[in-house]
Amino acid sequence: MNAEFATAPRVSVIGLGNILLGDDGFGPCAVEMFRCKYECGPDVEILDLGTPGVDLAPYLYGRGLVVLLDALDAAHTPGTLCICRWNAIAPSQVKLRLTGHDPGVAEALTQLYMLDQAPHELVVIGAVPKSCEFNKGISSEVFRTACIAVDHIAGLLLDYGVRCVRRSASLRPNLWWLDDSATSACCTDIVLARHTATRRTMPSSESVENSL
């Protein structure tokens, strides 16, 4: 392998979920807001991976800590934030296979375990969704939860011993799939950057290459 890719980042903060399906977009939304509120060192990567199924494996490969942000099917009020270690919920994931709601985390981890490349620690920060309806945007409850989840991500990273500092001024989160109206009402300190085709820019290639 080329030297450029010799080492994987130590820590990955990963948002999972389909942005087109309402509150299922919690993960991508939370990681984007985290990126804008906190600044981390080069050993931390922040990724919106969508719904990669078993293709998740390359992004967990050889990591020290992985923080997964995802919608969580739990018997709590919508908007509740739950933080779990993977091992605590792993047995329910294998059963989950039968229902069809399968994010592929269990598959990816078992495969990496066989290669001795499974992450040392995996923590799930989940939000209980209100509605995962297509094309309806995120609910105000879950959007508020995402605003709060970002500080918990920072806490986990600091506990793990990697650099993560609050930015003196937050960047503008690019939640291009949401309408302003869906989010601005419930989180006043977040100013959304409107996505337009003409203002798109490429992410820096460095961040991409580090991620693999």
Binding site: A71, L81, C84
Partner: peptide, 18 residues
């Protein structure tokens, strides 16, 4: 792809009511 939540029936480290 579909709405694909993780299921939580195990022990949580923390639970936050927002």
């Amino acid at each position: 792809c579909a709405c694909h939540m993780l299921a939580a029936t195990g022990q949580e480290i923390a639970q936050v009511k927002v």
